[in-house]
Amino acid sequence: MLRMESVTHQFPHRRSTVRALDNVSAEIPPGDFTAVVGPSGSGKSTLLLSLGGMLRPTSGAVYWNGDRVYDLAPNARARLRRKTVGFLFQTFNLVPYLTAEENVQVPLFLAGAAVSLQRSRARELLSRVGLGDRIDHKPSELSIGQQQRVALARVLSNDPQVILADEPTGNLDPKTGGEVISFLEELNREGRTIVMVTHDPRAAERATRRLVLEEGRIRE
């Protein structure tokens, strides 16, 4: 279970202070598919990064299965992240000089998996997302939709229980975006917890729950 307790995140901007999250508390039960929606600048991405152990809040606490994530040192959080969480980005963030297969291998490599396991797992996942014939292609040789599917395969490589997706359909056409949401639904049916930040009302409707953020506060 993911839980945020009175999380506030503020940062200095020129001579003023910007409050990206304002005393946010939320619970995301295991197996939930939550869409975080709200206008630009409402703090959606900040909430996702805080939840993912990537951004220490100014105050408040974030819990993963009852443990305070930010009590851990940065490197310990990184190691915990590689086992527990998968990130899906709006711009895919594939490593440009690696092939599709190698990109999918990255989380396995970080986890210290054997090369043979990395290879077989990457090929299996790329086949699952329909890119079994594109394993040697670099990101620049793939379409936008194919790149996001490589990113999906990468998310799954370490078999994470939680997937945090930041605008996963933001750069995709409606048809490809729909396919990505279908994948996320499929992963949710497998029991994975999914938290998805989105501007796309159609994508948000397909989540099982919605959190609405406005000016850094949750409006249920």
Binding site: P74, N75, A78, F87, V95, P96
Partner: peptide, 16 residues
Amino acid sequence: RREIGTLMALGADSFL
């Protein structure tokens, strides 16, 4: 920077 940030998001620690 973006690549390093991505690797860290995926679980790379500072030693790596």
